[in-house]
């Protein structure tokens, strides 16, 4: 399951529902109601708002728990005990990635920083989708933990605008099959 596809689907459904709501109300907007119908509409509207509030509350609580109960960012101030460690340094306009070959199937800890301005270390999977990313900020080291599942060549791009050489600031990471696999 590709996360980007899930997000795109949820967005289209959400925006579509909003659009349907507007279309429905706009079609009713030219049909003035008498007093009795107005009272009934007000009652229905209040009821519907409560249902909407309840639904949004469930989505809010459930979604917050589902997305945060395991915090998606690795601890930054404690040793991670990960055996594959890659140091990443960004500078206008190149990446220094050491080593640039890792094994699939076991976690990799990227330690990302910058020598000059803000960059963004984004790892693109062979299918062209972003696999993971973090900012490369001068004076800070951000740690990402990511487990590659598929061997291949992963493109590295800078996703934080960093000057005229921003677009060509690319590199590669080679992911080979798990050792012994």
């Amino acid at each position: 399951m590709i996360l980007q596809n899930v997000v795109w689907t949820i967005s289209l459904v959400g925006m579509g529902l909003v659009a349907l709501g507007f279309v429905y109300v706009i079609r009713q907007a030219g049909k003035p109601a008498d007093d009795a119908a107005t009272r009934k509409a007000a009652h229905t509207s209040n009821l519907l708002r409560r249902w909407l509030f309840g639904s949004l509350l469930v989505i809010f609580v459930g979604g917050t728990y589902a997305t945060l109960h395991r915090f998606p960012i690795a601890p930054q101030h404690t040793p991670l005990d990960i055996h594959q460690v890659v140091d990443v340094v960004g500078q206008q306009w190149s990446w220094q990635i050491t080593p640039d070959t890792v094994h699939a199937g076991s976690p990799v800890e990227f330690r990302v920083t910058s020598k000059d301005v803000n960059h963004d270390f984004a790892v693109y999977a062979p299918d062209g989708r972003i696999a993971t990313q973090t900012q490369a900020m001068p004076g800070f080291t951000n740690k990402i933990v990511y487990t590659f599942t598929q061997p291949g060549t992963y493109k590295v791009m800078c996703l934080e605008y960093c000057g005229i050489g921003h677009a060509p600031m690319t590199s590669e990471i080679k992911v080979v099959a798990a050792s012994g696999g």
């Binding site: 996360l3 997000v7 915090f71 998606p72 990313q133 996703l159």
Partner: peptide, 13 residues
């Protein structure tokens, strides 16, 4: 959706 950490990991910028 973009304001969700997990999603931001693949949608940011």
């Amino acid at each position: 959706l973009d304001g969700t950490v997990r999603i931001n990991l693949v949608m940011h910028n």
